[in-house]
Design a protein around this nucleic acid. Structure first.
Lengths: 299, 299
DNA sequence: TTAATTGATAGGCTCTAACTATGATTAAGT
DNA sequence: ACTTAATCATAGTTAGAGCCTATCAATTAA
């Protein structure tokens, strides 16, 4: 196969029309360049330079091939400069996956800091259910997930970001809305509105509820937290809402968010990546940034 | 420096997403490809592939560099195919230099054959005086000259093509026009019309004339053989004309071309190239073709 | 638990690109 | 004409790179 070095020798000869100077420009000895060029000619089966004592001159074939050689070398140069540009670990595109019960409520709190600490990263945001996200992460379509950690993610690498408490969302006039000290046990016998199957929040919330002796209200399954919130506000039932989803809406006229006493139901939000993911420095920066952003919000 | 082989390994990994298969496609062992790729990553200072047991996957940097690598490899491929196309020694452009006193009279006799025997050669014809032609040949602007051989061309390589007799051009009514047996000695005392300085024909012709005791007519210096011919036809004098220039005009009403007895004045037309000129096969074909074309014309 | 797959590692071989030293040929200067 | 300088080719040597086989380690599938 052709070697890039040989092409450099050829173009150097074209530039200097002199073996010694061309060799010097390539930082090799004259015999080296001479020999390699001869070998190249032999390999191609055609003469590239006419050798005279006074004068070195390219053959027509040589002239033409020098042009081709320059193109090759230019492409190689672009490859290298491209690699150099990629060397900055804090630059480039990054595809971030989040679940629907987290994205709209978390992102406003973290994106500003992320864009400040990683100004050269272009974040692409993907909202999907856990199962889909894990699949896409595995396929490489996504780089980083932020979602509640589950046991099934053990094959990936994960970083705990923060614990998000679950709060009790009730209509304002609901008996539990006025209770001073709220605990999970108070849910005993209640019917809980839930999200549609597939949302991990449903499984987690219902896990707590079942343990407390509450039951799922099967008459509805909301497809989003906003729907769920409006159902609660309409007096159709109660539900557990993640704290971040509740936060901005505490001042609602019709809704009440109740904070549980210990043991507080939580979901542990983690950042998940593939093991051996190449941009660990970037990941560490994201983890630090998100933790810092959240430390001000979650008490 | 980047090596093309490494780029092939990289693109192979991208294609197959599998070290073993990629190695097979590159006709190397798996450890070889593995090692070279690692070396490439080390060299660039960035990770190109994520290695998993089940799955090999390119990093974003890898994806981007694969694109660059493909460009480089494509350019290299073009270089090689270009070289292959140039391999035919009987193809390409060829710049042929001739002197003005030869070109218009010789070319019609030789170009047809040349184009037949070397159909893939594009002949570019350059008409200039000897000194200029030699300079351009030396500079590589011309590939081949066809002109009268002179001693100053000994530093070049030359092939004798044919001897062109010089004929005596006189008006029809000139005393020498009717002489049965014409020899150089008959020029004694004549005044000879000549071409302008710089035309080698002038020097050669006048060489013969001086030796015979003739003199140059300094009142005119023609810039072309056609002018010279018309001057003779107008009765302004006599001159020596190369046989090829005379040939097509024997039937002129006003001109007479006299053939000399031995020793016939001649100019020896040679093909001249740079020593070490790269396309010797082509040159040999040209020499053979021209000799064959001329053998029918010069007796 | 066993067998198969897959990528990394270790050790050794070979080829080659590089060097230095020298030769051959030509151009230029004395 | 002889000498010197310039220039490219040749010879012989060395260091390193690329490749191979054999093997290991980790995972998956049966």
């Amino acid at each position: 196969m052709i070697k890039l070095r040989d092409l450099e020798y050829l173009t150097a000869i074209d530039q200097h029309k002199h073996f010694g100077k061309a060799a010097q420009a390539c930082f090799v000895s004259q015999p080296t360049l001479s020999g390699q060029l001869m070998k190249l000619e032999q390999q191609l089966g055609l003469q590239l330079v006419e050798r005279h004592r006074r004068n070195v001159m390219l053959t027509p074939a040589g002239e033409q091939l020098v042009k081709e050689a320059r193109k090759v070398l230019q492409a190689a140069g672009e490859f290298e400069s491209c690699a150099k540009a990629l060397l900055d670990p804090f630059a480039g595109d990054l595809h971030l996956g989040l679940i629907p019960t987290l994205a709209p409520y978390l992102l406003p709190h973290i994106m500003a800091d992320l864009n400040t600490t990683l100004p050269n990263i272009n974040f692409f945001l993907h909202e999907n259910q856990t199962k889909v996200l894990l699949q896409q992460l595995d396929e490489g379509k996504l780089d980083v997930l932020i979602l509640p950690y589950l046991a099934e993610m053990e094959k990936f690498e994960s970083y705990q970001l923060f614990d998000e408490p679950l709060m009790l969302a009730t209509p304002k006039n609901h008996p539990l809305a006025t209770k001073k000290s709220l605990s999970l046990a108070d849910l005993h016998g209640e019917k809980i509105l839930t999200l549609a199957d597939g949302h991990c929040l449903k499984d987690q919330a219902m896990g707590y509820c079942f343990a407390a002796g509450a039951k799922e209200d099967n008459s509805f399954q909301a497809t989003s937290l906003e729907t769920l919130r409006h159902m609660v506000a309409s007096g159709m039932g109660i539900t557990l809402l993640p704290a971040l989803a509740a936060q901005g809406n505490l001042a609602s006229d019709t809704l009440h968010y109740g904070k549980f006493q210990a043991p507080v139901p939580i979901r542990g939000i983690s950042l998940v990546i593939r093991p051996n993911y190449s941009r660990m420095q970037c990941v560490r920066a994201i983890v630090a940034s998100v933790r810092k952003s959240l430390s001000d919000i979650i008490d």
